[in-house]
Design a protein around this nucleic acid. Structure first.
Lengths: 86, 86
DNA sequence: AATACGTTTAGATAAGCATCTAAATAAGTA
DNA sequence: TACTTATTTAGATGCTTATCTAAACGTATT
């Protein structure tokens, strides 16, 4: 819920791309990973940072874990930015 | 002008505080630095990153260099975020 | 229970970054 | 010109982070 975590989370291009992918709807970690040429471990790391920042949520369904966008946190940044513009 | 530079620039708390300070109007590097307990060198480093991201502009007036907010770049992030919310 | 599949965790490595001190540049002042 | 003040640049250091491989965990299937 901290601005710091949110800002750092979206400061990485891979993580921003993950968020863009999730716009289309929930996806499994594996499906997300297929869009990149990194290992599953690296993907898991990025997902955990996005989760820690509460930008995504996860839900296990049997073998798979589905990740989903949770945009409520972005309001914090939006507010900060618009206040900066006065 | 890149999203990457903008996002990284605002991912540091000191730099966000600098931007908040500049909301009140242009300030010299020295005056900005007085609000923090870092050295002038560190402050200069942060200012150069904000400048590189085009979040601020600088103008020399005699001995002093004045820094000023330039919020036009934030539109890029605002657009990205609102598009994420659908 | 044994094996396979999806995902995470542990540990290592290399690159990046914030910070410092010391030295350099730039501009005003005596 | 010498000296002071404002700011940046150079180089070093320690912390953080993105990435990898290998191993562990969780769940389903045979």
């Amino acid at each position: 819920m901290s601005f710091q975590k949110t800002a750092k989370a979206i400061s990485d291009p891979t993580r921003r791309e993950i968020l863009n992918l999730l716009k289309a709807g929930p996806m499994t970690a594996g499906d997300i990973g297929e869009h990149f040429k990194t290992t599953g471990a690296t993907m898991s790391h990025h997902l955990s940072i996005l989760k820690e920042a509460e930008l995504i949520t996860d839900e296990r369904k049997g073998k798979y874990i589905y990740y989903e966008l949770n945009m409520t946190v972005l309001d914090e940044i939006l507010t900060w930015m618009t206040s900066l513009r006065g």
